[in-house]
Amino acid sequence: MTAESFIILLYILVLASYVGFELINKVPPTLHTPLMSGSNAISGITIVGAIIACNVLNYGAISKWLGMIALILATINVVGGYALTDRMLKMFKKK
């Protein structure tokens, strides 16, 4: 990685973190768990990295298998996370 691209990534990190800090305020207690679950699903974004890691053509490569394991794990996180959050929020509406 060049110093220039590292600095750009660092800018992205700092600004996105600031947005993250400002996004959450005065959340009603009933939403604590859904918010935790929903943002947990977002942290499954690592699925993008897992897909890239799977993109190795050699089946004898350890990296390929690590990538595929990561993809299964990340998919559980993403799909399960969103589905569980939606199930929770659906119950709220019925009340």
């Binding site: 992205i12 990190l13 973190s17 993250g20 800090f21 996004l23 993008v48």
Partner: peptide, 21 residues
């Protein structure tokens, strides 16, 4: 590691908002 913007943005959002929560 992967030089990937969306991982950094989404990760930072969850990391920061998670601490506030």
């Amino acid at each position: 590691v992967l030089n990937n913007n969306v991982l950094i943005v989404a990760g930072a959002l969850v990391g920061a908002s998670g601490i506030i929560l």
